[in-house]
Write a protein that binds this DNA or RNA. Structure first.
Length: 208
DNA sequence: AGCTCGATGCGCT
DNA sequence: GCGCATCGAGCTA
């Protein structure tokens, strides 16, 4: 069985519906040093301009431009002055939506991945967070706008064995202070590479 | 195993 | 200016 790329058509759906396609899929990235592949085990849905947690909530800007492109493009953004996070664009067009790739298991190029993340004490910690995932793959701002459905692209997304519905769990998104009522973080139950869940909001609000 | 904090760039008010 | 879709070191147990 030869791996096949996911298609724009498959991804051009509501991000919540695309979760079952993304969980279990394999993102592969080339570099001069070699190839690393990661099996996605955790994602978060961001649902366009109606979602207060989405980068598109206040409309189109140079930064979120790629989220308005067609499905299958990679939206990479820079956070906290030192990290990158990657999203796969869904829907596209007038209703920008995306799935943030939050965690995965390294399935190829493990040695290269280890060299890129020496802090990881176990292989399951190589990509157990959105910025770590970008680190092991070598994904940076230069990959913003890449088409992961194109075999010629340096970053490609392959269909994986479907994860059983009963193995998909959901909960509130991480690091978000709004829309806590929607459980749009999804993960593969039992994967050791699911990111650490940080409970409780931020620090307690000081009394007036 | 859990929390706190600092590092650091940049998009937006 | 403020506040992040974060990570890792350093601490308390």
């Amino acid at each position: 069985m030869t791996p096949r790329l996911l298609t724009e058509q498959e991804l051009a759906v509501d991000p919540v519906d695309a979760v079952r396609l993304l969980l279990g899929s394999v993102l592969e990235a080339d570099s001069p040093d070699g190839v690393v592949g990661v099996r996605i085990v955790e994602v978060e849905a961001y649902r366009g301009e109606d979602d207060p947690a989405s980068h598109c909530f206040r409309g189109r800007t140079p930064r979120n431009e790629v989220m308005y492109w067609s499905a299958g493009h990679l939206y990479v953004y820079f956070v906290y002055g030192m990290h990158f996070c990657a999203n796969v664009v869904c829907l596209g067009e007038d209703r920008p939506g995306a799935l943030l790739l939050r965690a995965g298991e390294v399935v190829s190029g493990v040695d290269l991945a280890r060299s890129r993340r020496p802090a990881a004490r176990r292989d399951s910690e190589l990509a157990n967070g959105p910025a770590k995932l970008c680190d092991v793959l070598g994904v940076t701002r230069t990959h913003n706008g890449s088409d992961v459905t194109d075999a010629r692209s340096s970053v490609r997304l392959f269909a994986g064995d479907p994860v059983a519905e009963t193995d998909i769990r959901s909960g509130p998104r991480v690091g978000i202070a709004v829309a806590m009522d929607v459980p749009w973080r999804f993960w593969v139950d039992g994967s050791p590479a699911v990111s650490a869940y940080r409970r409780g909001g931020k620090r307690p609000i000081p009394a007036p």
